[in-house]
Design a protein around this nucleic acid. Sequence first.
DNA 1: TCCTGTAGCATACAGACTGTATGTACGCAT
DNA 2: ATGCGTACATACAGTCTGTATGCTACAGGA
Lengths: 201, 201
Amino acid sequence: MARTKVEQHALTRAELLRQGRQIFSTAGYADAATEDIVRQAGLTRGALYYHFRDKRALFEAVVEDVAREMADKIDAAAIPAKSAFDGLVLGTHAFLDACLDPAARRVYLVDAPSVLGWHRWREIDGRHGMRTLRVGVDAVLAERPDRALSPEPVTYLLSGALNEAAMWLHEAKDEATARREIDRMLLLLFERLFGGRRKGR
Amino acid sequence: MARTKVEQHALTRAELLRQGRQIFSTAGYADAATEDIVRQAGLTRGALYYHFRDKRALFEAVVEDVAREMADKIDAAAIPAKSAFDGLVLGTHAFLDACLDPAARRVYLVDAPSVLGWHRWREIDGRHGMRTLRVGVDAVLAERPDRALSPEPVTYLLSGALNEAAMWLHEAKDEATARREIDRMLLLLFERLFGGRRKGR
DNA sequence: TCCTGTAGCATACAGACTGTATGTACGCAT
DNA sequence: ATGCGTACATACAGTCTGTATGCTACAGGA
């Protein structure tokens, strides 16, 4: 009992983030009323505007959270990899798994670039999702050197392809089959792009 | 003088689309006030709500226009191609050129999926931009048969990569250099994905 | 322990914007 | 000429965001 003020501060902020994430995920940013968010958090809009400068700032904080969580999952998934190439594959699978969360798709992939602006979104993604991808690409290129491939363009081309794949997955009628086909096609893409075989697979 | 009513109808609608496209491109959908759009068109909001059900319907009509224009340019660019593979390359160049237009990036690539919903956007894109890409991919696969490649996943993976490339191009400091590097990397990607040499591999 | 300041919210208010309802003038067919 | 529907303009209501102000309980110094 008798929570200290600094504890309460963190608790309230976290609750606003939680409920904001939930409402943003289901309704989308534009149709998410701040009144609904604070009501679900058992607060009023006064609390929201005390903790965040405006609605957009709350959204950006949610985006940061989502991005961080996804990057953590991807990093963790790549750890047990036998090779850099396997690490890239495992990371890719972890990314697609993370996109099972509606917040990852609606908030992070769809609304964020529009609400925050593409430039700002790219900056955030560059510190999280795309960073993990860049690390994977660099590792593969260290393992399979290829002068023709520039890491940076390769990274964002793959990033775009992966984001699109994640969205497309949830439009398919048979999700399991679609997932297998995507996994297969991504593996093929990686193999052909980075060189079919290199000291065995 | 004395324009007939049916002429006036088309003229007014076209003007709303013109000004809407301009305002949406610069301000973004959310910050584009309908009042500003109709003022630039020399009208009032009554005219807008007569021609379109709501603001979103106007935006969707603009998106359709932009999508159609882009697809037309891509189709036209691919005509003089010597081979299906060249057609794909020429088409991608035309796409990147079309994305010099801010409306193509802000309206079509960034705002449209968020405002119209990803599903609706995918449907529109499927009839225009992605359709041209699919045609190109199918032609290349007819030219260079490859049982391992499924046309549909390959198409949207490439679509995602291309959209990302188009956005990234305009973040680069030296746009000309970035463009050359992207062209080179896309060509490399196509060659390796579809098989480096003719009916070989 | 008491007193005071301020953090952490709640409440009240103003402005902006969308969508709708209503008004109106002009063209066009009869 | 006259009645009617199209193509707008005008007026209004509802919703939402952001801000300004009010209130209360706790923290910290004397």
